[in-house]
Amino acid sequence: MSVRFGLTDDQKALRTGVRRLLERRFPREALRAAVDAPGRLDRELWRALGEAGFFALRLPEAEGGVGLGRPEAVLAFEEAGRALLPGPLVATHLAAGAVPGAAGGEVAVAAVDGELVEWLEAADVVRGDVRGAVPLRSVDPLTPLHRVPHPAAADPLAVLLTAAEQLGSAVRLRELAVQHARTRQQFGRPIGAFQAVQHLCADLLVRAETARAAVYAAAVTGDPGDIAAARLLADEAAVRGARDCLQVHGGMGFTWEADVHLHLKRAWVRAGRSGGVTESEELLAAALVR
């Protein structure tokens, strides 16, 4: 059991492959360019993701998919979260096989989740009832949002993939914090030599690694309780992680130029998906007395 919980060689290769693809197709300059052009979906990048199998990952090979499972999808979405990849990734991934063109990245699919829809205007296909949708001035420059009067419940798989994205952010935020703590000098030494800063960084790691175990386990079991637990841990790791990373960055962390705020804002958007943390907590509580 437990001794085979770790990633297989194929899974490690898949993770590395997605990371390399995103480093090539969506480097930091592309991220900052996207921030400057809000609401625009990069179709070339979308097709590249489609060709790489990002959307068709879990689709059976007989249907033209890659034929892999939840764990592989989770690893791919973790990388997407790490890179802050924009676009209706979860909705399009879940539409693969059901909406023509979604699997190959020719079509971008948006979906109603709770009372929000991400990327409504840029999407080619919208799933759910969007009558009366009103645009919001989105807090996240990389996620256009509409509010709808007819909320829809979320697929547990959407919750899991969102948790994977949160995990990716959490891990990246830990790296950013540690990088800054190692290089920024004050009082004649790196600020990472001070325990007050070290302990913030240690907590970033503890939250991210605990979330990782929960997210990967939920990917293996697919159990609704495990998925709810994964989302709670991953939301905490990303949101608290962004706050602590911002704090480690000091004044720089409060600027538009640093990437920390982009992770924080996206983490807030993701934490608001699928009924928010309340729904997951209530689901787990209800299971305790069943």
Binding site: A211, A213, E281, L283, L284
Partner: peptide, 25 residues
């Protein structure tokens, strides 16, 4: 209170998985 219990359940599920993960690694 109910939500606190739900969150604790998430926490202990995660800790159980973390132990398995650590042993595996």
């Amino acid at each position: 209170l109910r939500r606190a219990l739900g969150r604790l359940d998430a926490e202990f599920r995660a800790l159980w998985r973390l132990t398995q993960w650590n042993v595996s690694e």
